[in-house]
Amino acid sequence: MKLPVGYHKFHKNKFLNYQLNRWYSLGYARKENIQTIGSKIKTFDDYINEFQKASEDAIQENRLKNAATYLRASEFLIEPNDVTKIPIYKKFIELFDKVFEDQNFERHKVPYNGSFLSAIKLPSKTKEVKGTIIGIPGFDAFIEEFYCIWNYFTENGYDFIAFEGPGQGGSRRLYDQYFDHDYEKPTKAILDYFELNEVTALGVSMGGYWIMRAAAFEKRIKRVIAMPPLYDWLEMTNSFNQKLAKWFLTKRRLTNFFIRLKMNVGTIKHTINNALFIQNKSDPFDAVEWMMGMNKEHIHSHLIDQDVLLLTGENDAFQPVGLLKKQKEALTKAASVSERIFTKSEQADQHCQMGNLGIALEEMLNWINKKST
């Protein structure tokens, strides 16, 4: 599938505009639909309702790929305590499976921590299988929405296993697995279940942090890709803000008060809501504490001795380019460290290269092929 190229102005709000570009860049949305939806959005409720309407229209016209994508987009901003959140997720999964029922992919329930992790396996579409890649989504993504990424590698000779760790996707919504920063534990469960001894591991978005943490402790990972790296949450801010954030962690009631004041703002509202949802908590303070759990001490960069590829965009608003440089400096024992910073001229400068995802896929494939030989 040829992915769209171009990062568009679908909305004046940068956060909403990125999300609209996200669904379009992944290849299963109509540009005209996204433009229409964007023109009608003023609030999160507008966003939710317009995508649900677009999904219903697509179902009526038998455009099921569009319908599934728009339903997923709608679920994205439904608040954790909304009783429609899980039913809409389940309807999305039902649509997704119907859309791709002719594809040779398998759903798996991987035993973990008294319940299960959600995983899908996509076998290579070539006669010669070059190896296996495992992949994870990020803070607020599903394995299904990145199907175009996983599928790309199967078309080029690799088996691909995508999974959702505790707190993510179906692992949270179906199996009540709540978040754990120690990502080597679910990674071990996946490698054990599929009997894998050597893999390349890819983390997309905030998954770029968790997959690096996994590689530090799980040596069946031979090559690791962070798209992009996070390294340390506080490194995104200046030294004053770092000190302020640490001070707020000593003031639970005050922190809750100020966060609730700010939660009418788009990015903050979504970040806090989702951080609490994946932990099954309700106190905003716990969201801040969760964010601080992703730090340069916890990631254990000094234990990573594999080949590493770091990718980012020069204008990434969520995981800024400076984090790549800090992560690279910390990889003192890596077998090799490669990097690629995508530019605006390539239309790949945004978070996770939305705008030109294809160029990132090609970069990763070439690197994996080179490091696997």
Rank of each mutant, 00 (worst) to 15 (best):
314 E>N: 02
309 L>H: 02
312 T>P: 00
310 L>V: 06
306 Q>E: 12
315 N>T: 11
314 E>T: 02
308 V>I: 01
316 D>C: 10
302 H>I: 03
314 E>L: 01
302 H>M: 03
286 D>F: 02
289 E>L: 07
289 E>N: 12
301 S>H: 04
303 L>G: 00
289 E>M: 04
296 K>I: 11
306 Q>F: 04
305 D>S: 12
291 M>G: 13
300 H>W: 01
313 G>M: 01
293 G>K: 11
302 H>E: 15
318 F>H: 10
312 T>R: 02
284 P>Q: 09
316 D>E: 13
286 D>V: 05
291 M>P: 08
298 H>F: 13
309 L>R: 02
296 K>F: 12
300 H>Y: 05
310 L>Y: 10
306 Q>D: 07
288 V>L: 14
317 A>Q: 14
290 W>E: 11
309 L>K: 01
306 Q>R: 08
318 F>I: 11
299 I>K: 02
312 T>A: 09
319 Q>C: 10
303 L>Y: 05
295 N>I: 04
298 H>E: 14
301 S>E: 07
294 M>K: 14
317 A>T: 12
291 M>S: 12
317 A>H: 11
314 E>F: 00
287 A>I: 06
317 A>C: 08
312 T>N: 07
307 D>M: 04
292 M>R: 13
290 W>T: 05
312 T>G: 08
292 M>T: 15
310 L>M: 09
284 P>Y: 04
315 N>H: 11
310 L>P: 05
293 G>E: 14
311 L>Y: 09
285 F>I: 03
290 W>R: 10
299 I>H: 02
319 Q>W: 06
294 M>I: 13
310 L>S: 10
306 Q>G: 04
297 E>P: 01
305 D>G: 08
296 K>Y: 14
300 H>T: 00
304 I>M: 06
299 I>G: 00
317 A>W: 03
314 E>Q: 10
289 E>Q: 12
304 I>N: 02
302 H>P: 01
289 E>A: 07
297 E>Y: 14
304 I>H: 05
302 H>Y: 10
288 V>S: 10
297 E>V: 14
298 H>Y: 09
309 L>Q: 02
307 D>H: 14
313 G>E: 01
315 N>M: 06
298 H>W: 09
289 E>C: 01
305 D>E: 14
304 I>D: 03
310 L>R: 06
285 F>T: 03
301 S>L: 04
310 L>G: 08
319 Q>G: 02
318 F>M: 12
318 F>D: 02
303 L>Q: 06
296 K>S: 15
286 D>E: 15
307 D>R: 09
300 H>I: 00
318 F>G: 03
318 F>T: 09
286 D>L: 07
287 A>K: 04
299 I>Y: 04
305 D>H: 11
292 M>A: 15
304 I>G: 03
284 P>W: 04
307 D>G: 05
316 D>S: 11
287 A>N: 05
310 L>Q: 08
305 D>N: 13
306 Q>K: 12
306 Q>W: 07
301 S>N: 05
301 S>V: 02
308 V>N: 00
304 I>W: 03
295 N>H: 11
309 L>I: 03
285 F>W: 06
302 H>R: 08
310 L>C: 10
308 V>K: 00
294 M>L: 12
285 F>V: 03
303 L>M: 05
319 Q>L: 15
286 D>N: 11
310 L>F: 08
294 M>T: 14
311 L>V: 10
291 M>H: 13
311 L>A: 11
287 A>M: 06
304 I>T: 06
316 D>F: 10
319 Q>R: 08
298 H>Q: 13
297 E>L: 12
